[in-house]
Nucleic acid binder design. Sequence first.
DNA 1: TTTTAAGCGAGACGGTACGTCGTGTCTTGTT
DNA 2: AACAAGACACGACGTACCGTCTCGCTTAAAA
Lengths: 199, 199, 199, 199
Amino acid sequence: MDDEQRRRGRPRSAEADRAILEAARDLLIADGYEQLTMQAIAERAGVGRQTVYRRWPSKAGIVAEAVMAGLLSPVPSDMAGGADATAPADLRAWLHAAAVGLSDATNLTIVRALAAAAAETDAGAIRLYRAFTEQGRTDLIDLLRTAVARCEVRADADLEAAADAIQGAVLYTALAYRPPKVEHLDSLADLLLAGLAPR
Amino acid sequence: MDDEQRRRGRPRSAEADRAILEAARDLLIADGYEQLTMQAIAERAGVGRQTVYRRWPSKAGIVAEAVMAGLLSPVPSDMAGGADATAPADLRAWLHAAAVGLSDATNLTIVRALAAAAAETDAGAIRLYRAFTEQGRTDLIDLLRTAVARCEVRADADLEAAADAIQGAVLYTALAYRPPKVEHLDSLADLLLAGLAPR
Amino acid sequence: MDDEQRRRGRPRSAEADRAILEAARDLLIADGYEQLTMQAIAERAGVGRQTVYRRWPSKAGIVAEAVMAGLLSPVPSDMAGGADATAPADLRAWLHAAAVGLSDATNLTIVRALAAAAAETDAGAIRLYRAFTEQGRTDLIDLLRTAVARCEVRADADLEAAADAIQGAVLYTALAYRPPKVEHLDSLADLLLAGLAPR
Amino acid sequence: MDDEQRRRGRPRSAEADRAILEAARDLLIADGYEQLTMQAIAERAGVGRQTVYRRWPSKAGIVAEAVMAGLLSPVPSDMAGGADATAPADLRAWLHAAAVGLSDATNLTIVRALAAAAAETDAGAIRLYRAFTEQGRTDLIDLLRTAVARCEVRADADLEAAADAIQGAVLYTALAYRPPKVEHLDSLADLLLAGLAPR
DNA sequence: TTTTAAGCGAGACGGTACGTCGTGTCTTGTT
DNA sequence: AACAAGACACGACGTACCGTCTCGCTTAAAA
């Protein structure tokens, strides 16, 4: 089966793809989503405007792709707990890392941009949010699953729901408080751990 | 003593204020935040463009004001539990109401618009989110406080943190899932209630 | 009989009249007719906008009035020839004075403004041009009539036609040449004097 | 050798140039210079507003170009005298034709528009007047030169000064009198011919 | 090889919204 | 009444982007 029939004519420049996404990321971080324009992206990428449109129909699409490509990841994801870690410590560490990450103006800008981009696609909004939070979600679920194995979390808990709740709470706290309410996140950790603890 | 020194010249039309906010709300719900333009707002409000700019510098400001004025309240707020209600029932009822509210395309549009508006103000973003969620937050805290009084929730719980976490989780679920994962919210309720329960 | 029935209410401020015309003149000289606005006139005159509109319907009207009031006279008019003057000398003196007057940037600006103002009134254009040139026309005709009396100009010459021709030629030369072609005006004087001389 | 280095990008539409100038001319004739707007020009030309600004910075520039392009020539120029014509007859014929031309409301509107356009360019004013009158000036000088050859005009006359004076007088008469004073022009012709006649 | 087809930078095109400014009118309270 | 102040509906200003469309050119597969 031949899935790749070579298209004729000059092939698209992979370099241009990269340059466009990077330009979009840089401008996004610098000026925010609203100020981001196709025009400016093309100029900064050193690329014709049509070359951008040939690839993506709108800036929301570009931002989405940049997120997918991992060019815009807000929270450092390597929160794998050490051998001697416990569930409470792991969870608190994750939440603290998230809080620190979202304290940074750049990352906050990215989150807001994401929200703005999601507001105009409608169809892509869900995909966009999921892509953005996928890594953290996986990490959290792994973390909790490990805790279940250690009998620090009860076996019948809905880990996915917990992970979503944590991410939602973290994002909301980051967006609605400046500086982020770290004590809220600590309380949240206590609360969840109490709820998740084996009876 | 009259501290109200009458300002000179023709006073601003309160009618125009109202018309502008309503026009903005209608257009926002109909077309989304990105399509919303100062031009269109003015036209629909039957008002000169300058009359809009005289009051608000940008569409983000108008949306913010509309939120403050309660013209855009996403979640029905009269969730006061009945006399025989219990904490689990109340919380589940609130979460269900929120889920139902955010299932509505109109309210989802509003939430997304809010996120987009918040992305471009920077200074006003926090104020905006807080205004938007204030009512629900108050309701939730009241609800939980009542539960504390009934000894259904332990006295040393951080109710504010819980309320923020709930709102964040609900909003995130609404934005990242379509249709909203009601079962997630149910699990979330279980989790929180377990965590909040007296030891 | 008193046909002047006193009007009721507060009488119009003569001071305002003056201030408006002077403001218009100053702004006109400074920035040209196109930049002249009712707004700016009112502000510079220290007067409400309505106070201007109450008196004149448009900037063309104000400029016309300013011309009528002699606030904008381009050519110094005291060209009355001395007792020992002769027609050739008088005419050359007048043309030189006109050329010198129109060499001044201020006066040139005024002439151009006049042309612009005349372009938009249509009805008032003729009145405007005539008011502007009336003084010079009268002077010229007097000058020529004196010359007729001295038998330096033949009696059957059409002095009005000559005066109009002179003014037209002078204005055109001022508008179409920069610096003004004084030698053209000298040649014109020669030409006209030859044509006007007694046979 | 090719000194014409091809400019990059899509070339400007010559069609748009033409459409804009024609639209400007039509609107100018219809409504006068003051009512002429870049907006209206673009609409009538069926062209984007930017396409107009890309070419000319202001309506004065457009009017100037239209004059240069001969789209706005007020006086029919083919006044070449017949074989049996004489200087007096030719000159009178020219003046009459000019008077007739400027009697027409359209042409008068154009002349006034020209004056208004000239009032706001300052730099281009002279160029504009000269372009507008160039054809007539040339015709007049030719006419007078022919008369010199026939010994109907003396050889040392300053023909350029005479031509400018005639044009100025004609334009002024057209602007300051309504209906134009044809008898003044006749008198002017007599006067000039007497002045120009060989001694 | 030559042809053909697509990509590319550049920039003009018809549009639309921006935010500002001026217009002429209309309230305000004061003189 | 007239006045200063200033809001009002309106509409043109000149700019910035939108998404599309030529241009001349490059690039690489197909003929």
